[in-house]
Nucleic acid binder design. Sequence first.
DNA 1: CGAATTTGACCAGCGC
DNA 2: GCGCTGGTCAAATTCG
Length: 238
Amino acid sequence: MDSPNYDEQKVEALQAELECLQKENEAMGLVLETMSRKYNVLHQAYICQESDKRPRLEVPAAACASKTSKVFVKTDPGDQSLIVKDGFQWRKYGQKVTKDNPSPRAYFKCCMAPGCPVKKKVQRCVEDKSYVVATYDGQHNHDVDSTAAGQSLSSSSIFSPATSIPVRPTVTLDLNLSGSDISQNRRNPSSVMHDYSSSNANNKSIEDYVASLTKDPNFTLALAAAVARSIKTEHPDN
DNA sequence: CGAATTTGACCAGCGC
DNA sequence: GCGCTGGTCAAATTCG
């Protein structure tokens, strides 16, 4: 039988490794979110292009310009409410089940200022129920409640491919991460994280990072290995 | 009791 | 013209 000291050291080592894996898992989750965002941007651009090809569908093409915007908001999949906290006050005036999506679509009007013409539609994403899609229609004739916006944005991830709404979430992410870096950073997981807001000013560079990551086979392999390790950690018997 | 939400009814646009 | 669908209205209901 091992000595108590040896057991304690073993437990501490396992706890440290567990902590490392949790942080690594968190980092990978953020990378995945960024990739999802990239997908949403490309998907939006594709929809715009498809709309341009069809003469009858001029409204969506124009909508890509400014007046209509779509926002993808990550929520708890178990949370059935269609509430998107974006700093504005909304009054719900209707709900419908649409043909293309079994989840109900909720209709809101902005009631922060009298006469504000902005409406929004909120519906759970048909492909990924952990996201809701908020479609904003029109432009606000007043300012956003910055306090409420700050509080709400910190609690959910908002992807805004073509929005005029001033959303600017702060996430912690190192987009310079490559396949070999991941394994190296396992030794020092804190180095994986840095303040994304400091590099947020240059969104194009971030997109370029993500694009290069998605093309990098080493990154794909490392991502798969990290996911496998996380699963193995959570389900060691399987 | 007033405000907000729910929900069924109604209306307009579009395709067949 | 008819039916389908998305969007809006407004009475009923719920909540603080």
